[in-house]
Structures are given as C-alpha cells and as structure tokens.
Write a protein that binds this DNA or RNA. Structure first.
Lengths: 349, 349
DNA sequence: CGCGCCTCTGTAAGCGCATACATCACCCTG
DNA sequence: CAGGGTGATGTATGCGCTTACAGAGGCGCG
C-alpha cells in the first residue's frame, strides 16, 4: 500500500481476481452489478488509477493521438503591439484546438510536441511510440522519418505532401492564391506584382506560387517563372526578403505578395523602414488568416484557412485508417476564403 | 516481421541481446560504438520504434506531462469580427504553448485534454494514468478527484486553489484588480462602479473582487460587500449580467468592472444594444488580456496575465516535485500588468 | 432428471521493455 | 604471473494490465 495501488491490490481487497478488476474498467457490462460496485468502491478507497502504460502494453493501443508541429516561435516578434502575445497569434493554436476537440469526442487524448529544431529524429519516433495515430504539420518532419513511422501507425500530413501516397488534409492553396492574385490584378488594376515565397521544400508555399502564376496566365500577364524572393516563413524572413526586393527591383512593384501572413507582417515593417506605405505606395498580401493580420496597420489582406478544420479532419482520417488499415490514401481539401482588408487597398485605415 | 518489430527482432538481427538494444536507446554511452551503430542500423532497417507503453511499464515513468483545461468553447462567439476565430482567442492557448515549450525543453511531451463537460471523472484519471505530472487549470476538476490523483503523481493547480496545500502557480489577481480599480477611481474620477463577478466557486474571480473592494477601501469609498452581479465567465454570461445590471441600477453606474475579458466583451455588446457607448456613457474593464480585447471597439482596458508563464512555471513546479517528493507545497505568484486602452477612457477610438 | 447453454468469474500467458546481477574478456599493477 | 579492476554484454525477472480459455453454477427445456 506504500506505493501506488495496482489491480492486484484492488482485487485482493475486493475479494476478486485481477481479471474481474480489469473487466470492471474495460467492459463493465460483463460484470455483475454487485461485484462491479464492490470493486469500484475499493478502487476509490485505495486511490487506484489504472496505469496507461500497462494497459497500452497489454492491449496494444494507447488511446492517444499525436500532433507534431513546427516550433514557429518567432523570436523577432516585433509585429505585435506587445511582443508578449505575438506568440499566441500563430495558427497552430487553432489546429491544436480543433484536433483536441475532435480527438476527445472520439475518446482519445492528444499528445503534442513541437519539433525540436536541433534533433527532430528522436522526438518523432518518441511520439510514434506513444500514440495510436499521428498528425504532422508540414515541414515538421523529414519524409524519410515519416516513412519509418508510417509503417507502424497511421500518419496524416496536415499540408500538401510531396507525394500523394499518404493520407493528408490540405488547404486549397492554389485556389486561394489564385483568387487573391486575381483580386489584385482585376479589382485593383495592378500589373507588376512580386511574390515572396517560402523555402522551396514547402509544398504549401509552392502551391500558392502556382496559384499566383495561374492568375497571371488568366489575366494575360507575363508568366512569372519563379518567386521574386524567398525566405523562411517568419516575420524576420519576410522583412529581409522585402528589403532585398525593394533594393533590387528598380521599377518598384505595385504589390508584394507573401506566401504567408507572418512574412507579410515582416514585409510591412520593411516598408515602414523605407518610408513607404501600404497600400498607397505598394499593396501587401499574406496567406493564412492569422489573428495578427487584423492587428497590424494596415490590416492585412489575406486568404484565410480553416485551421480548426485541419485538426478535425486529421482526426477523422486517422480514425478511418485505424478502422481499415488497407483503405486507399485519402486527401481532404479544405476551401479557403479571400479576406479583403486594408493592405491591398480595400478597406480604409 | 509481419507486425511491428520489437527489441527482440532488433536484437536477433544485430546478433546481440535485448538488453544491449535497450541500452543503445537508454544509455548509449555504455555500449561500444561499433555495437551501437550496428544495432541502430538494424533498427533503422527494420523500422523499429520503441514502445512507449512498454518503456513506461518497465521504467515506471512516462516522459509525459499532462494539462487539463476547461473547454471554454464560447459558442456565442459573436464578439469577434468573424465568429470563426473567436475560438482561438482564448487564453488557454497561451498556457498550452508555454507549457509545451517548457516541457519539451526538459525532455517531456505534453498530453492535453479539455475536461469533458459531462463526465469528467473518467478523463482525469485517464490522464493521470498516462503522465508523470499533471497541471490543472482552475475549475476544471473537482477537488476530491484531484486529491485521489495527487496521491499518485505530482499535481499543480494553475490558479488560486481553495487550500494552499497544493503546489500551484497563481496570478496576482488581487493586486491586478486593485490597480485597475484604483485607476478608474483615481485617474478617471469615477465613484459609482459595479462589479460583475464569476461563479462563487471561482477563486480567481473572488480574489479579483477582493482587489476591487480594497481599492474602494483605500479611496475611502463605501465598501461593496459583494459583486453587483454574477454570471458564468463567458461572453453570453457577461452580456446577460450587464443587461440585468443596467435594468436594475437606477442611477446608472459609471463603470462596469468585469471579472474577465470575455464577460467584458459581452458587456460591451449589452451596452451597444442599449444605445450606450463606452467609455463615454460608461467605462468597461476586463481581466486577463486576451487578444480579443484589442479587436473589439472600444479596445478593452484590462489586466494582463502572463499566461505563457503560467505554463512554464507549472512545468518547473512539477519537475521540482518529481525531483523531491517531500518538499513543502510551493506557490508561485505571477505579477500582472495594467493595460489601459479605450474602454476606460484612456486611449482614443 | 439430465443436458446444453448462458452468465459470471478465475487462471494463466503474455505484451515490450528496463535493469539488477552475473559473466567474461581484458588491462593494469606489483 | 596472480589478483583486482574496468568495461561490455548477456541472463533473468518483473513492471501492471488485457484477454483467450477454462470452470462453475444456474437456468430452461425435452
């Protein structure tokens, strides 16, 4: 009784076998009411809490789903009015929420871990060893590691994966960026745009760029063959890229189209430093729809992703595969919506 | 080889014993380099992923910390410009973030679960069975359940607990509300304030009310003996309470002081419905510092809590107790900061 | 009255790993 | 060259639970 009580203790005190104790928790219906209540009473008295590890070992299922996301801690968080809460403006929060809620609805708990910048190797298989299914945000885990993990349990990517052999839920990046770019071209009459992309290995970023290209195509404008600049997907990256671009492009572009909101916010800062103003001197757009976009001046025109849905759909796909290991890979595509605010010249302020 | 490989498979293929395989992962330094690499190579080839459950069972530690939070899904999310993202404006996101980061720094993963409205009983001990330590947000779990769980593992409360016998990290609710109320009285010259509290069993809410009282005391104003109204801590609740208050109090109060931001936002709506404007007709204040407070009109004067810190400190306390089971209960108090915005008459707009 | 069947409970065998302890080879010291 | 270390590995056990299987009553039915 010194250490934490186990089934054995409960069984002994209740005068039953450990199997019965186990059944009280696993399949209460198969135990006579009287017995069940006696066991539960003893358990309560003893402070018995079933060991998740033991249960996991014996039943070969953990009742936990996992979520890996990149650690987007944007240290240069100067975009927000107070640096303090810039960090809570990131979209993974929404994904976490959505996923937690969906998981809980289905009786699962959620294990979360940002990928460690340094050695991700450990963390992923660490996670994989603890969960029944794993959702991975884009750019978090190298493909080959995922392959290893996927041999062991269901894995769903939360982004457009390089190949389509994996379950994934993606967002209509192409369509969204197409709509946004068309808006700039058609509605605002802009013709010389510049695109600031993310890393080349970001499938989302690349898909957005293709949407950007398509809008040019549709409008009969010259087809940009690649992003005018690239950087990582942070505010700092966006600012640097914008600075470089403003230095480099002699007829200043009429719009800076960023691959995501954080970069766009960084871009706004770069403009400010140059004494330029959006949207008067140059339009600016982002992608994602993070809350921060509404707090900056001017408010940021963007394409909003349904991030809560990302999490929900991830759970749905994981459960589907858990139920049928051999089903064909499925892709869920979530629609985006164009959010016109001030930075493209739509709203005032 | 059909099913997922285990230490036995790896050991056999590498020509070593399972103990050596285990050591390769647990204490690599004790294995000869040559052996270690052979084992790792085999493991990689086989797609071996150590089972968290088995490890947990054998080592009696899971490497996971848990966080229970209330499901504050504010269905009446009309406060936000788009209802969609009202849900990501809640402060638990920040706590989750802070805790995840701190946990990861110390080699732990984070298991999260909102308390199920219906039957919380199961979820808590479910969690407890899977983690090495548990952080619990106020009002999430009944005290007696916590007592049971606390016999098994370290538990820290993220709020002012009813008794001080538990590790907890609290926020300086009293001081914060005192400062805020004094600001209204001294700087804005208001004398007839009304306080809208939360449920009586919310320790935070009660502490805030005591700060409110103290400010009256210090200013020589009549001491309010209890909140002028109470409601649950949601927008809907705040709105209803404000409506009732405006109907009831015949000389309209000069300020509505809400126990938290969400209620205050609801209160702003109530004012709008009455054709009243803050701060001109009546000042309004909140408590927490949620991002939503900056998005509403007028922007919300509030007291900001360092919520990320809440999570970080929770981890610190859990680790401390894990290291020394017999240390006396510790309380960490986090300072708050008064954030003056428009709704009290400080900023414009 | 005997048989099959159903309900409830017990028995026993792992689940995959960590780890104390034993073993063994080898090196150093005197 | 013996004796004591030291480092690397193997052996064996148990962590706390689930679950197939077996057993024991009790029931209805022919």
């Amino acid at each position: 009784m010194r250490s934490t009580p186990t089934v054995y203790d409960v069984a002994e005190h209740a005068g039953v076998s450990i199997a019965t104790v186990s059944r009280v928790y696993r399949s209460p219906a198969t135990v006579r009411v009287e017995t069940r209540e006696r066991v539960l009473a003893v358990a309560r008295e003893l402070g018995y809490v079933p060991s998740g590890s033991a249960r996991g070992l014996a039943s070969r299922t953990t009742g936990v789903l996992g979520l890996c996301f990149p650690d987007f801690h944007d240290t240069e968080a100067e975009g927000a009015p107070d640096a303090d809460d810039a960090e809570l403006m990131l979209y993974v929060d929404e994904v976490i929420r959505g996923m937690e809620r969906a998981a809980r609805r289905h009786g699962y708990a959620l294990l979360i871990a940002a990928s460690v910048a340094g050695g991700p190797g450990q963390s992923v298989s660490d996670m994989a060893g603890r969960v029944d299914g794993l959702a991975v945000l884009a750019q978090t885990v190298p493909e080959d590691e995922l392959d290893v993990v996927a041999r062991r349990l269901p894995v769903v990517m939360l982004a457009n994966p390089p190949d389509r052999a994996r379950d994934h839920v993606e967002v209509a990046n192409f369509d969204g960026q197409l709509a946004l770019t068309r808006h700039l071209i058609k509605d605002h009459g802009l013709r010389r745009l510049a695109f600031v992309g993310g890393p080349e290995d970001s499938p989302d970023g690349e898909a957005r760029f293709r949407g950007y290209q398509a809008a040019h195509l549709a409008a009969g404008l010259p087809l940009p063959d690649r992003p005018d600049a690239r950087s990582d997907l942070t505010q700092a990256g966006g600012r640097l890229a914008a600075q470089a671009l403003l230095d480099r492009l002699s007829p200043r572009p009429q719009a800076l189209v960023f691959a995501n909101d954080q970069m766009a916010v960084g871009g706004l800062h770069a403009l400010g430093e140059r004494g330029l103003r959006a949207p008067d001197d140059i339009a600016v757009t982002g992608f994602d729809g993070i809350p921060l976009g509404r707090l900056v001046t001017p408010t940021l025109t963007t394409v909003r992703q349904p991030m809560g849905q990302l999490g929900e759909q991830a759970v749905a796909l994981l459960l589907a595969r858990l139920a049928d290991h051999d089903r064909p890979p499925e892709a869920r595509v979530l629609a985006t919506t164009l959010t016109r605010r001030a930075s493209c010249g739509c709203a005032d302020r």
